[in-house]
Design a protein around this nucleic acid. Sequence first.
DNA 1: AAAACGGGGTT
DNA 2: AACCCAGTTTT
Length: 346
Amino acid sequence: MNFSKNITYWYSNNKRDLPWRKTKNPYHIWLSEIILQQTQVNQGLPFYEAFVNHFPSVFHLAEANEAEVLKLWQGLGYYSRARNLHASAKYVANELQGVFPNNYKELLKLKGVGDYTASAIASFCFNESTAVVDGNVYRVLSRYFGIDTPINSSKGSKAFKALAQELIDGNNPSEYNQAIMEFGAIQCKPKNPDCLACVFQDTCVAFNENRVDALPVKIKSAKAKKKYFNFLVFISDDGKTILEQREGKGIWQNLYQFPLIETPSDISETVFQEHLSAHSLLKGQDYTWSLYNKDAIVHKLSHQHLYTRFWIINIKELNAQTIPINSIRDYAVPILIGNFIEEFSF
DNA sequence: AAAACGGGGTT
DNA sequence: AACCCAGTTTT
């Protein structure tokens, strides 16, 4: 029994029952793969159901507004995935008459579809023998073969892709690709893998050399930078507030937020008062304000730690583009804002 | 080659 | 606090 046969057999006995495993429809597989990028199955599952229900076909998705797509994506993170998903849906619907590309090379042309996702769709839907290499595959291969090349180096990504491609079962690339990922997800886990009940115990290099905990090797990323966000939650006497759409580069592109004052460090109420006095929206206006959260809310992204304060500003009238507070839940917002909206009694 | 890009779960 | 997740794109 070789590696591929063994792992495919393990899969047939241990795989989870997941909705995208009941279909070969490339639209559904594509949706699931984009949603699952850097996202655990349990987190992605409800979003997959929501997208399939809300957009039953690629044409429904293509005809939606980006705002609607972002709203449904709210809370899942990496919002470029949603923007690229929508752009690619338009491309498939309008340029390809709704017919998905049926091979790795053409799939790679879709925005948001890289090497992993193109390989996944090509193999799952069209039985093309292209190996997937995701975080699970890196872990399983580095341990089984005892490879300590950093998985996130360019040398490593090429080497592991080549190895995976050598190992793929050409007779059943779909099952094999899913098998090695599932094996990594539920048995050859990052921490406390179940080596004592592993079918590869005899031949796993890491297990036999006691190097399981040392593999895979990964180059450490830079520490997260701290940022200081002050959100201005305006409340007018006639029930309105202000939401602004984020634009340009950076986090949360095209999502909405309360007007933001970013400062180089955490600020006191005294310093905040100075910012407010200089604010264009409030020139010559009567208003009262209060700080919602005495301790900064720390919102942790992979590369930034956001120290956040919400400042409530009551004002008679707003001379700016406003929205009715009772429609605030229609807008796609970062979960940091969404949590505040749910928590705060307007 | 390195950094940017979210949010949630585990250890 | 560090690490990980069915990665991709930009710098």
